[in-house]
Every structure is written in structure tokens, then in C-alpha cells.
């Protein structure tokens, strides 16, 4: 077990305890959640609850970055928010998520703005099982990005 400090994209920080245990993505399922325009979780499905390790009540009302794993570079999330919030476009990418117990799981995530009557009212994030080849590629890429961020 390792204690680490996580620096969030919005400038806040928190301390987490990590394990190196990977939890496999549930076969055939999609992990679904919705946030408001500030990234606060408003809805989530049972697969999201099961994989996060939190209770549903602990998730609703929390910022989505509660799942942020310290191995993920800030630049990935900046790109996500720039794409969906500022440009109103779909974002897709591979993400390593942190569970409540400190273990982790990988997903292929697609995030879309929820546009109603021409106005963005929130965002939906749909995660599916990623390819192991892509995870291996991205693990190296994210390591390099994190190293750059630490230098800066």
C-alpha cells in the first residue's frame, strides 16, 4: 500500500492509499454516469457503483474526479474538459480509475455533452471494456506525460 497526494485539475488536492490490484472490467456492461456542467455526479448506473467501490449515496453530489487515479496525467482531463465543455464535442480516451479501496480499473471512456433545446445541461460518460494492447500503450504514454508534468 502506498499513500499518495492527488493534485486535481481544478487545483484541489487529496491524499489516497493505493494498492496495485487491478479489478477486471465487468463483461458486457457499460459504466454510465452523468454530471452537471460543473462535473458533479447527478446519475450513475449499478455498474458504476459496483466498480467504484463506493455506495451510490457517496457518489451522487461528488465531483467526478473522486475516481481520479494519480497515474493519470492532468493533461488528459484538461483535454477532456476543453473538448466537451469549451468545444461542445465528444471526447474519447483510455482512463485508469481509482476505486474507494485504492485498487484500480481501466476503461475506454466516451464523454458527450447532453444538449437539450440547444443548451448543454450536463455531460454523460459511458465507459466500456478497453483493449489490453491499448492499455499497455497508454500506460507508457501517461507515465511520460506525468514525468513532464512533475518537471514543470
Amino acid at each position: 500500500m502506498t499513500k499518495v497526494q492527488i493534485n486535481y485539475y481544478d487545483g484541489s488536492q487529496s491524499e489516497k492509499t493505493l494498492t496495485d490490484e487491478e479489478i477486471p472490467f465487468p463483461e458486457g456492461k457499460l459504466i454510465v454516469s452523468r454530471t452537471d456542467t460543473d462535473g458533479i455526479i447527478t446519475h450513475c448506473n449499478q455498474a458504476f457503483v459496483d466498480m467504484s467501490g463506493f455506495e451510490k449515496d457517496e457518489l451522487i453530489g461528488q465531483p467526478h474526479c473522486v475516481l481520479r487515479h494519480p497515474d493519470m496525467p492532468s493533461a488528459a482531463f484538461k483535454d477532456l474538459w476543453d473538448t466537451v465543455k469549451d468545444q461542445g464535442k465528444k471526447w474519447r480516451g483510455y482512463v485508469k480509475n481509482l476505486r474507494k479501496d485504492g485498487s484500480f480499473y481501466w476503461v475506454y471512456a466516451v464523454v458527450v455533452p447532453n444538449v437539450r433545446d440547444g443548451k448543454t445541461v450536463g455531460f454523460a460518460s459511458i465507459r466500456r471494456k478497453p483493449s489490453r494492447t491499448k492499455i499497455n500503450e497508454l500506460t507508457e504514454t501517461y507515465k511520460a506525460m506525468l514525468a513532464e508534468e512533475k518537471k514543470a
Binding site: R34, K90, V111, R116, A124, I126
Partner: peptide, 13 residues
């Protein structure tokens, strides 16, 4: 329905 369509949209790539 709108949410279902958003979800389908994420599955299209």
C-alpha cells in the same frame, strides 16, 4: 429518449 440517444452516440465510434 434523449439520454438513450446520447448513449447511442457514444457507442458509434
Amino acid at each position: 429518449s434523449e439520454f438513450m440517444l446520447d448513449l447511442i452516440d457514444t457507442l458509434s465510434d
